[in-house]
Design a protein around this nucleic acid. Structure first.
Lengths: 192, 192
DNA sequence: CTCATTTGCCTAAAACCTTTAGCCAAATGC
DNA sequence: GCATTTGGCTAAAGGTTTTAGGCAAATGAG
């Protein structure tokens, strides 16, 4: 029998593509085997199990997202950087909904440690260099930005903001304006 | 044979409990039948299929969350209300991780329309009565708050903020401070 | 180039989940 | 009491996951 040339990487990329096409939770070892016109058991030489496959897809998505983030941040600072990184997340989720869903796959602590998670928080931290925040407020702000980016994009993807005025793009722009204003004027204690 | 007394509601509640115990994605028609010591096919008289079961659990979680939100908001306004509602989400996710995961289950448009989604956005809007925002900024702010609540809680649940200083509670408090400050001082246009 | 080894895809099979169809007994209502 | 509805059952088909063991294709050493 001629060999198809399966590798963990090819399977992962094909799985990611499949996720974008039919949804991350529809990605299955069986479906992937079908796509390569190969018997299901053959995949188990390259991937430990279904969970492993999904983890790999999640890690791929996180890497891709971090790569795009780095590229977008290069040469930018301040609000320009803020907007650029925010748009990377939103655009990625829009262009690659399955990959974005994969990026939210619950990783084991080991997988999480080996993921691009650190790169992501460092990118957000890089943005904050354009603002005047000391620790621990800088970390609080990193978490706030992460929450807004992730939260907004998730809610938008779930359809939360469609079919109602104003349109989502308008809210997105204003929210980034507001975050920029907030970071420039971060409250010290109780600002009465 | 004696009847067990299954109903869609009992199945839904049992499914929600199971989600909290073993995770929402482990909730399966088979597992639920096992829990009631009943044959699998019996459940199909009460629930259309697996997807229907999950949708019902999601709707239950959204209702419970809205109920808690209403209770927490009663008699509160301003930052007090903001904190109260925010804590409802965070505490619910902490106490009922499976239900919270269910609340993020992708609903069909019809199910979403019949869900407590509207109650949720109205609760957030009620908070904003304590601040001075006109449309469309009020809607933008509703979306921002929803994003932060959902985003923060999701990232926290995924383990994003554990094992690193400052602790998550500190960030949560400061983020709510910051949101309060932002809402009190919402930028009008370009605040140069 | 040949032969030994490794590797890749195969068949087979067991275990589990989903869903439908049709049956019988228990509950319900006149 | 009896007819009807309803709830849980058996049976069965189809799909997914995963392991075990086999054979042929690729690879590398002499």
């Amino acid at each position: 029998m001629a060999r198809v040339g399966l590798t963990p990487d090819r399977l992962t990329r094909a799985g990611a593509d499949m996720a974008d096409e039919v949804g991350f939770d529809q990605v299955t070892v069986s479906a992937l085997a079908r796509r390569f016109d190969v018997k299901v058991a053959s995949l188990y030489s390259h991937v430990r199990n279904s969970h492993d496959l999904k983890t790999r897809i999640a890690l791929l998505a996180l890497e891709e997202l971090a790569d795009r983030g780095s590229a977008a941040l290069a040469g930018r600072s301040g609000k320009d950087a803020l907007t650029a990184l925010a748009d990377v997340y939103r655009d990625y989720a829009h262009d690659h909904p399955g990959r974005y869903a994969a990026a939210q796959f619950r990783l084991t602590p080991e997988a999480a440690a080996a993921s691009a998670g650190t790169r992501h928080s460092q990118m957000t931290r890089a943005i904050l260099r354009g603002y005047d925040l000391d620790e621990p407020d800088q970390t609080h702000a990193v978490r706030l930005l992460g929450s807004v980016f992730h939260g907004y994009v998730s809610l938008e993807q779930a359809g939360g903001f469609s079919h109602s005025a104003p349109d989502s793009q308008a809210s997105w722009s204003r929210i980034l304006d507001a975050l920029d204003a907030l970071l420039r004027n971060w409250p010290t204690t109780e600002a009465g």
